[in-house]
C-alpha cells in the first residue's frame, strides 16, 4: 500500500478481496474505533461534582500556607528569610523587626506571600529552621481581586 492515506490497522495484513476492500474503506478501523469509544462512554467517570463533593487530599498535599504558632499563640517565625531565600518563585516578602518577646531577637512585622506567583513547591516549609511555615491542605482560594491574592501576615496566621 503505497498511499499512506489509505493505511488502516497495521496489525493485521488483510487477505482476500473483500477484506482488502473493507480495509481500504477504513471499515475495520472505524469499527474498532467505535468499539473503543463505546467502552469509554459507559465507563464510570472520575469527575467529582466539585462544590457538592470535595476531593479528600492525600497526606502531604501542598496547598495554601499557614504561619504556625506555638502553645502560647505566638508565631513561631523568627524572620530569618530562609523561606524567602529558598523560594524559587520569589513570592515571599518579609519585613523584619524586633521581636516583642524576650526569648528571641527578631520577628516578622509583615509577611506576604503572593499566592499567584507561588508554585506550591513546599521549599519554604523545607527551608524553615523553626518549623514556622507549612503548606496546608486547603486547595481552594477564592478572591475577587489581585490584592487579595497576596496573603499578609494575619491571613497566613489565621489559615
Amino acid at each position: 500500500m503505497a498511499n499512506d492515506d489509505r493505511v488502516g490497522s497495521r496489525d493485521v495484513e488483510p487477505k482476500g478481496f473483500l477484506a482488502k476492500t473493507l480495509m481500504k474503506l477504513y471499515v475495520p478501523s472505524v469499527l474498532s474505533g467505535m468499539k473503543k469509544t463505546m467502552e469509554y462512554m459507559i465507563r464510570p467517570k472520575a469527575t467529582l461534582q466539585y462544590p457538592e463533593v470535595k476531593r479528600v487530599t492525600r497526606k502531604g498535599y501542598r496547598g495554601e500556607h499557614r504561619l504556625k504558632q506555638d502553645e502560647q499563640g505566638r508565631m513561631k517565625c523568627v524572620a530569618c528569610f530562609m523561606c524567602q531565600t529558598a523560594c524559587p518563585a520569589e513570592c515571599i516578602e518579609i519585613t523584619a523587626g524586633p521581636s516583642p518577646w524576650p526569648d528571641r531577637d527578631k520577628a516578622p512585622v509583615q509577611f506576604r506571600i503572593d499566592m499567584m506567583k507561588c508554585i506550591y513547591c513546599g521549599m519554604c516549609e523545607e527551608a524553615c529552621p523553626c518549623d514556622a511555615i507549612e503548606l496546608t491542605e486547603t486547595y481552594t482560594q477564592v478572591s475577587t481581586s489581585r490584592e487579595e491574592k497576596i496573603y499578609d501576615i494575619n491571613r497566613l496566621l489565621s489559615n
Binding site: A79, F81, Q84, T85, A96, G97, P98, K106
Partner: peptide
C-alpha cells in the same frame, strides 16, 4: 541596618 535586609538579596 539591623533587620533591614539579608545581604544576599
Amino acid at each position: 541596618f539591623l533587620y533591614a535586609s539579608r545581604v544576599w538579596f
